[in-house]
Design a protein around this nucleic acid. Sequence first.
RNA 1: GUCCCCAUCGUCUAGUCGGCCUAGGACACCGCCCUUUCACGGCGGCAACACCGGUUCGAAUCCGGUUGGGGACGCCA
Length: 487
Amino acid sequence: MKPATIQSTLRRHFIQVLFGVSMTVRTRFAPSPTGMLHIGGARTALFAWLYARHHGGEFVLRIEDTDRERSTDEATTVILDGLSWLGLDWDGEPVFQAARQELHIQAAQQLIQQGDAYRCYCSKAELDDMREKQRAAGQKPMYDGRCSHRHDLSIDQPDDQAYVIRFRSPDEGETVVNDLVLGHVSFPNAELDDLILLRSDGTPTSNLAVVVDDADMEISHVVRGSDHLNNTPRQIQLYQALKLPIPQFAHIPLIHGPDGAKMSKRHGSVAITEYREQGYLADAVNNYLARLGWSHGDEEVFSRQQLIELFDLTQVGKAAARFDQQKLDWLNGQYMRQANAADLVAEVTRLLNTDISAGPALEPVIASLQERSKNLFDLAEGARFFYQAPDAYQEKAVKKNFRDTTWPLLESFIAGIEAMDDFSGEAAHALIGEICDKAELNMGKLAQPIRILIAGGPVSPPIDLTLGLLGKNETIQRLKAGIAALK
RNA sequence: GUCCCCAUCGUCUAGUCGGCCUAGGACACCGCCCUUUCACGGCGGCAACACCGGUUCGAAUCCGGUUGGGGACGCCA
């Protein structure tokens, strides 16, 4: 046993002793490594993580790589990166499902011995044909159990004909899922066909593996997307047949695109890591995702800590939610403003991707831009002119703010700051005021042209801050270059 | 098609056991204010209980149906 495992086992034991019952919450996130970690998966992971953390329990990771055709190590890495970025830390090492085949096969053997599973010799073509006929007859395509009563071939007898192992599910009665989000959901057993446990190559299928693993890993609450709801009654039957304790289930509604259809590539950035590239803050994404389907009164902004304190599955809504980029943008803006400038330096430096050694310190530049930036990308672009003199001036802004009277104002401004012994943003600002007063103009008549020559466009932090950060020499140099270029 | 789920402003949602809801908040949108720019912020506005029945003194809230949307129907997960 690894130290971490011993520790968690001890902790679980401690809680059990303390409360006299087994009440450890243990949730899991079980992605299949066949693609990116998308928005929906990230939210499922977040909810499972929040639930565990809220209850002081554990959150574990299981990589469901049993479909070896489509699973890749690369996808696993991307998923882990995504979770790490969001700060959804997992307990212990990730478990790889493919490595646990023996356990799954054993369970299948047990079911065979109990008579709860049987060999099915139906070929792919035969099954296709069967389904096609069912569909044509307006029925739900499902296995009709044609091999379940074949007694002519002993299941223990070696056979050169390919077969799969199917679960013998009950035909009558109903199976009830008691879901923490959806409540009672019952399925007629007649609707549940005999699912495949072991493929013809002997490998276990996901439904078997999930049940065996969730039980073996002592998962107390299975939190997953509601696209798995239909698998749940079958899984419950497997738990029962294997005499394993049934966990609690919580099926989280799916996230739809703005058009109401399931999220897909055409809705833009579905990979969670894409949001990092676009300059979103992890906590803002978490906050947004949490509010999609969950709420706490009228509040909108929740820190990570508050989410852990307040989150509960009982407050998760049942309806699917649409993804709304504008609200994410707004929330991200909230976090941008709240953030410590120092914490943003590294990421902004990366996004700027230019030499900043000659310009002002990045931290105060960031501070001056935080409240006018929706995201880090915005912020980096807003900061760029501090380190790169404009090579062009926005035409529309020039047209609007420059006229013949502008030039003398600029000249006297330059003369004024050239004469200053100790230049500062405040002094420059005061000078603009003086010049405009004298000319009986409002300050914008001079401040805007200055801004355009300095930044290349009509947008920047307040002029005093901007000039103060840029410094006397750079200010003069840019103004002169601008006059030369435009006059 | 069959089974399952869902249904409050354009979007996310509040709405504990039906009365406090002439339905609240947030995003978006539209005004106004603040402002040397862009933003932030402040104030105000627009805007919803899908429909039809029933239960009840009283329903967004309970029940039934209709409609609409979504999910699932693989030797994928």
